[in-house]
Simulated scan of single mutants.
Amino acid sequence: PDVSDDALVERLDDWLLPFLAGDASFAAIKPATLSSALMALVPHDLQRKVDTLAPTHFDAPSGSHVPIRYDGEWPVLSIRVQELFGLDRHPSIANGTVSLTLELLSPAQRPIQMTRDLPGFWRGSWADVRADMRGRYPKHVWPENPLLAAATSRAKPRGT
């Protein structure tokens, strides 16, 4: 569909109005409402393709369902590093053609490293990150070989 600014403004009552629930101003419209209204313009079969090629979330090895951000040049996955233990290939979307930029987080959800090469990170700077983080977060798991460790969203595995 034509989603140029002019076309959207011209047909505003057709595509946006059905999604508004008494919002009195444009500032009151939530981004999710706007997103839903715009996606309704896309034919259903193409919506499914978009959902497949550009998912809203990443299913981490830890079992977490982590949102993917599409607000920059590349899609970004902000995730605690422990949730990727055991993953030996870099996460991607679009049938493997677009690598996610990983914003690896500490247990306190603070960025510790950005990478587009997770296997390279495990082989390279992981040792330095591990040494630094073990001192700051001693209650969390910091294995020497993260590829052999079980991914976790918890501090220490149960029973230890």
Rank of each mutant, 00 (worst) to 15 (best):
residue 1 P to M: 12
residue 4 S to D: 02
residue 4 S to V: 01
residue 6 D to F: 06
residue 12 L to E: 03
residue 13 D to R: 15
residue 13 D to K: 13
residue 14 D to I: 09
residue 15 W to F: 12
residue 18 P to F: 03
residue 18 P to M: 05
residue 19 F to Q: 02
residue 23 D to Y: 00
residue 26 F to W: 11
residue 28 A to S: 15
residue 28 A to W: 09
residue 31 P to G: 06
residue 36 S to K: 14
residue 36 S to T: 04
residue 40 A to E: 07
residue 40 A to Y: 00
residue 41 L to C: 11
residue 41 L to Q: 15
residue 42 V to C: 11
residue 43 P to D: 10
residue 45 D to R: 12
residue 45 D to N: 14
residue 45 D to V: 08
residue 46 L to I: 10
residue 47 Q to V: 06
residue 51 D to K: 11
residue 51 D to R: 11
residue 53 L to Y: 13
residue 54 A to C: 10
residue 55 P to I: 01
residue 57 H to L: 02
residue 60 A to C: 04
residue 60 A to Q: 02
residue 62 S to K: 05
residue 66 V to F: 09
residue 67 P to H: 07
residue 70 Y to Q: 08
residue 72 G to E: 13
residue 75 P to M: 03
residue 76 V to L: 13
residue 77 L to T: 03
residue 78 S to Q: 13
residue 80 R to S: 00
residue 80 R to L: 03
residue 80 R to E: 04
residue 81 V to N: 04
residue 82 Q to T: 09
residue 83 E to A: 06
residue 83 E to K: 10
residue 84 L to I: 02
residue 84 L to D: 00
residue 84 L to R: 02
residue 87 L to F: 04
residue 88 D to A: 15
residue 89 R to P: 01
residue 90 H to A: 09
residue 91 P to I: 03
residue 92 S to Q: 10
residue 93 I to V: 15
residue 95 N to L: 11
residue 101 T to F: 01
residue 101 T to Y: 02
residue 102 L to K: 09
residue 102 L to W: 06
residue 102 L to F: 05
residue 103 E to P: 00
residue 104 L to T: 03
residue 104 L to A: 04
residue 105 L to D: 03
residue 107 P to R: 07
residue 107 P to Y: 02
residue 108 A to H: 03
residue 110 R to Y: 07
residue 113 Q to T: 06
residue 115 T to V: 05
residue 116 R to Q: 13
residue 117 D to R: 08
residue 118 L to R: 04
residue 123 R to D: 05
residue 126 W to V: 01
residue 127 A to W: 00
residue 128 D to A: 14
residue 130 R to T: 00
residue 131 A to T: 10
residue 133 M to Q: 15
residue 133 M to R: 09
residue 138 P to G: 10
residue 139 K to F: 09
residue 141 V to K: 14
residue 141 V to A: 12
residue 142 W to N: 04
residue 144 E to C: 05
residue 144 E to F: 02
residue 147 L to F: 03
residue 147 L to K: 05
residue 148 L to D: 15
residue 148 L to I: 08
residue 150 A to C: 07
residue 151 A to K: 06
residue 152 T to S: 15
residue 153 S to F: 08
residue 154 R to M: 07
residue 155 A to I: 01
residue 155 A to H: 10
residue 157 P to R: 12
residue 158 R to C: 03
residue 159 G to W: 09
residue 159 G to K: 12
